[in-house]
Design a protein around this nucleic acid. Structure first.
Lengths: 194, 194
DNA sequence: TAGGAGTCTTGCCATAGGGCAAGAAATGGA
DNA sequence: TCCATTTCTTGCCCTATGGCAAGACTCCTA
């Protein structure tokens, strides 16, 4: 196991037995993505998911007018997955793209299924990750209704500071549900608050 | 099994064996809620979830200013559950309230766990339900950014027509992220479109 | 190292939706 | 069946954000 230190963080020895880890860890494959490379594109059915060992990733959807809307940002340690596409086995509505060079660990659906149905701790952890995603999405969704754009921006930056280095203003703006023009003005206001 | 026709719809004989159904169905308990009764309140940890056999239910959160924001509406056949509270075993951020008298079938967490870990088809179905909720929430979230309020209202009414009979204008408005005043004007516009 | 593509800022004006308050309509008890 | 309460509508004006376009800045890359 010592040859995969990153995965040993993801699968804590306190939650998994040594035998379980020996079944799980070898199944993950290290893969590299270069800046701007796509991990998944709209219309394809996701057959993998990834843990990010290093790098930064964005997912986005294309709306009816052809504009792209950022749906999520993923940093080191995050799980990158299109849940509906991966589990419902249907074409993705989103694109997932590396914003920097990345090192990831990937698993395919069939292997996931066999681990999921044979190892109780594995499915507990998987379910927890999914519910955590659901919770984050719901909080963001409520925040879109109750909080002004400036507050949402501040919260986003405090939670994922890497975003400032890796993501364009426009891509951040669509995640917040505003235009790049408005976000530029909000940034100016925040600068003047000091 | 014939004494629980509703549950036989939820657990299709094509996905479960006879033996599995005999383990699953007796665990669900029929419960009644009267109009305005709470199924779950903020701060409590959810220990049950429900299938709705009849009735209509709303969930909502309270924002920092004390306003309530509708987060979901549940109709006949829907699964009513606070995913993060139920699975992460932490206090709920939401309230779930019956908007009409309801007949539901409930299951508690411990029983869920034993079925989840012992019956493969049960966990597949549970996972599918959760991913379906995630998908619906994400679509709503994207719609909040890309679609005008009028379109979101039309979509909501077409998907859950019962909402018109059971939910006040204000409670619908907060779900759409607008005020009751604005929704009233939108309704008027729609009426004039005819 | 200059040109060009993308990115960010800024000004001008337009618009969707919000805040408030008054009145109208519906609803629900007693 | 009548009153009280809640819900819904409407008018007035305001604010946050959008749309567009020009200019500034950055950063590739030939």
């Amino acid at each position: 196991m010592t040859d995969k230190p990153f995965l040993n963080q993801v699968f804590s020895p306190s939650r998994f037995t040594k035998e379980e880890l020996e079944k799980i860890l070898p199944k993950y494959e290290q893969v590299y993505f270069t800046k701007n490379q796509f991990l998944l594109t709209e219309g394809k059915t996701a057959n993998h998911y990834w843990f990010i060992e290093s790098g930064f990733i964005r997912s986005y959807a294309i709306d009816t007018e052809g504009n792209d809307v950022s749906t999520n940002f993923y940093a080191v340690g995050d799980t990158v997955i299109d849940w509906p596409s991966f589990f419902l086995r249907k074409p993705s509505r989103e694109n997932i793209q590396a914003l920097t060079d990345c090192v990831c660990w990937q698993l395919d659906f069939d292997t996931f299924q066999s681990l999921f149905h044979s190892i109780e701790a594995f499915r507990e952890q998987g379910r927890t990750t999914l519910v955590g995603s659901y919770f984050a999405l719901k909080n963001h969704s409520i925040s879109m209704i109750t909080d002004p754009a400036k507050d949402r921006y501040k919260k986003l930056v405090s939670e994922k500071p890497e975003i400032l280095q890796n993501v364009s203003l426009k891509q951040i703006a669509t995640f917040l549900g505003i235009t790049d023009t408005s976000l530029s003005r909000i940034r100016k206001e925040i600068a003047n608050e000091i």
